[in-house]
Amino acid sequence: MASSQTPTSLVNYDAFLFDLDGTLLDTADDLGAALNAVLRSQGVDEVTSDVYRPAASNGAGALLEAGFKTLWPEQAQSTLIKQLVDEYAANIANQTVCFSGIEPLLIALSHKKIKWGIMTNKPGFLTDPLVAAIPALKDASVVISGDTLAEAKPSPLPLIHSAKLMGVDPKRCLYVGDAQRDIQAGKAAGMHTATALWGYVPSIDEAVSWNANFNWQSPIDGFNHI
């Protein structure tokens, strides 16, 4: 499926905002390694990437539920969530890389003097060391985490706050993400939105049903808007 064509298809933006996991960075294998460490500790079979990858954008609880399957309701969930987060924090960027096409897009934005930033629901104590470990993200104008404000996505407040810090009108900002809450938050903030179909979307059909302004197969689709 090509990028959706809408009346906004030729718009150029003053700023891009990106989700982190599943949009800028492929973090699934590090998250999956943390999940499998927890599963091993509980005598449960490890899972493969086809199990953990679809849950990678949805937090520790979703990952653990994917791993434990029907056993999850009977587990000490808060304890295991903490264990998974601790495992992940200790090995946060062992296998994580930018998705193909992200680095050229970010370089092009910087060359065009178009601001770009990161707004993720990942908590700051994980976001900050992860972003610092990826050289391609060093020029982000703003990095806003899920606990920067009292509300996280799908609330529009973190996106509005991000635009304010960058000094841009939300209406002149494009938000790119791979989860329904990303598109909901972007719309509520008055931004145009693009679904990152290369990310951890549940399915292409479901992702398209979120009705973003654009459905991008690749970060290279972003070059049409700079």
Rank of each mutant, 00 (worst) to 15 (best):
G67C: 04
S49L: 02
N215S: 15
K112M: 03
D30P: 02
P156T: 07
Y200A: 01
G177C: 12
S203V: 06
M191K: 04
E65M: 09
T6R: 08
K82S: 13
L149I: 06
Y175W: 05
K112H: 11
A34S: 13
A15V: 03
Q42Y: 00
D21P: 00
H192N: 15
S57M: 06
K122R: 12
G199L: 07
A89Y: 01
P123S: 12
L149S: 08
R40C: 01
D147Q: 06
Y88V: 11
K187N: 13
G222F: 02
K82T: 14
V51P: 03
L24E: 10
D21K: 08
D29A: 03
G199H: 07
V168P: 01
D29W: 02
M119D: 04
L80D: 04
A196V: 09
V97W: 01
A37E: 05
M166Y: 02
L197V: 11
M166F: 07
H161K: 11
I118L: 08
A189Q: 13
S209M: 05
D178Y: 06
T148L: 09
L165P: 00
P7Y: 07
A140V: 06
M119S: 07
S57E: 04
L105W: 07
A76V: 03
A185V: 10
P73A: 13
F68N: 06
K171R: 15
S4G: 08
F16V: 09
G199K: 10
A55D: 05
Q77K: 15
A66E: 07
A108P: 00
I114N: 05
A196T: 10
G32A: 01
S41F: 00
P104Q: 13
D139G: 04
D26E: 12
V85F: 00
D178C: 05
M1N: 09
T70K: 10
G67L: 03
L84S: 11
I160W: 07
I102G: 12
P135D: 14
K153Q: 10
T195F: 02
L80Q: 05
I183G: 11
W210P: 01
A56D: 02
I226K: 02
I81F: 01
G61K: 13
C173G: 03
F68R: 11
L71D: 12
G186D: 12
G177S: 12
H192G: 03
A207L: 06
L197G: 03
A207H: 02
V85G: 04
A194E: 02
I226P: 03
D14Q: 15
I134K: 04
D205Q: 14
S41G: 15
V201C: 11
I114E: 05
N91Q: 14
L25I: 14
G167P: 04
D29C: 01
